[in-house]
Design a protein around this nucleic acid. Structure first.
Lengths: 263, 263
DNA sequence: AACCATCATGTTATATGACAACAAGACAAG
DNA sequence: CTTGTCTTGTTGTCATATAACATGATGGTT
């Protein structure tokens, strides 16, 4: 028996080549990936209900004409995804919480300036509310943390990269003060996507322009900080919204100025 | 050689048993899971930088004293997670975007009413902004969709379960009208977590109470809808915020009324 | 009858060896 | 310098065997 039925893959690859000679990466799914895809679809579509038992490894081997290695690797992948759980000596079952897949934003979705602005918009919606909640709920410890983050930003004014980190730290401290762990989690997640791009934008400027830019950012930070200290939720919301809208504007400007290729 | 060095696992299990005889599930990691954990930590900690090449399967087998089966399953799991990518004949490499892990909220995190209210708060922050954006950007097609969803809700008033679905559909339509795909994605993700619980709450009531409750919801929906039609972003934001705050209030009330156990 | 130890069976977990598919460099021929 | 071939190393797949585990059946004991 041919150990690897690449016939299908080869056909796909050739077809792609005729359409575009520049084709850099023929996907050419492996058997394992194929099986993962099939099982995942069956689970997500509900054909395999939560709690249902998957066919045994032997049956899957027979039905699909693959080796146990392939089946086991596929199941391992699904288990890593949290879609199935296996019990030695019993079988493999569809996870009870298979329905709510993890939320994820791929880097491929962020190839255009418009998409990045969309992401910043999403972030803004969360942070404005976080600022308002922080104004209502902040404790003394949160205020100390906020002040410390502001000071850290001041200290980092001269170093563009460190300043971007400190900037994010200030925002995280606000999310912490909001007293809702979900806000912190989401912000961290989005931050990892946005920060690198922001950092590059900042560092592309001259040192003098960097400092001027960062001073402006810091002034907006202080406005947010003051509103939170004053327990003025609407003001905090407005200050954060204004801050992030200007941030979007700055990004739009810098992206437009330094060529069309977003990073 | 002993084919499965369960010594460590057994020790762990016994230790746990001495601490708590009720121990329901000794984790007892398998070798595969162990290796997945180790490699994942090395990647996330940065010890294995993005783009770096992993040791070959043979080397991993030798160093860790496990079979190739274990190594391959572990790598398959990491590949499913998007942390590594493998190229036949070349090797396995840490993915470039290994840093930003998918965002996920486990069901275990939602065991208390407070946590669920936190989640509703997060959802509110996103939806209020979505409503405001929808008011600014909605096209004619969006208005048609919104009207259709409202009508669907009216039609489902009698059937509690269908009404909850229609309710969510209306909210999704607003996110669509906001013209930012991320809002739709996040709402869908959060919806899968919130909807079932909301549904149970509604169905626990008497039919008459259900209808009264749903009529109140629908009135709030209309207020949001009208603000979006009028392109009045602040009004849309306020209407949505009010709607969701009342929703939180209702949940708090129902949760308090029907026993302490959240679902 | 109720209880408990033991066994048989089926399943997953792991180990091992082999071969196929592929990539990249070495190397010689043109 | 280019091109084709070979060698080597790596991942992908197959096949088989054994260990660990769960579950129900069996049969003996109380």
């Amino acid at each position: 028996m041919n150990h690897r039925g690449r016939a299908g893959g080869s056909v796909r690859r050739e077809a792609a080549a005729t359409r575009n000679l520049e084709a850099p990466l023929p996907p050419a799914r492996s058997r394992t990936e194929d099986l993962v895809h099939r099982l995942r679809q069956e689970i997500l579509s509900g054909a395999l209900a939560p709690g249902a038992r998957l066919p045994t490894e032997q049956r899957l081997c027979e039905r699909l004409g693959v080796s146990r290695t392939v089946v086991r690797e596929a199941v391992a992948a699904l288990r890593a995804d949290g879609l199935v759980i296996t019990r030695q000596g019993v079988g493999a079952f569809v996870s009870a919480d298979a329905q709510h897949r993890p939320f994820r934003i791929d880097a491929e979705n962020l190839t255009s300036i418009a998409r990045i602005l969309d992401l910043m918009e999403l972030r803004a919606s969360i942070e404005t509310e976080a600022a308002a909640l922080a104004a209502q709920r902040r404790k003394a410890s949160h205020l100390r943390e906020l002040a410390a983050r502001l000071a850290a930003f001041d200290a980092a004014l001269a170093h563009g990269d460190a300043a971007v980190q400190a900037d994010f730290g200030f925002h995280c401290a606000i999310a912490e003060a909001a007293g809702n762990a979900f806000f912190v989690d989401v912000l961290h997640y989005l931050g990892k996507l946005v920060i690198p791009r922001q950092s590059i934008r900042v560092l592309a400027q001259t040192p003098a322009a960097q400092t001027a830019y960062l001073r402006g950012v810091q002034a907006e930070h202080r406005a947010i900080h003051d509103a939170i200290v004053a327990r003025d939720a609407p003001a905090a919301r407005a200050a954060m919204l204004s801050h992030l809208q200007r941030s979007q504007e700055r990004y739009r400007h810098m992206a437009g100025a330094s060529g069309r290729r977003p990073v």
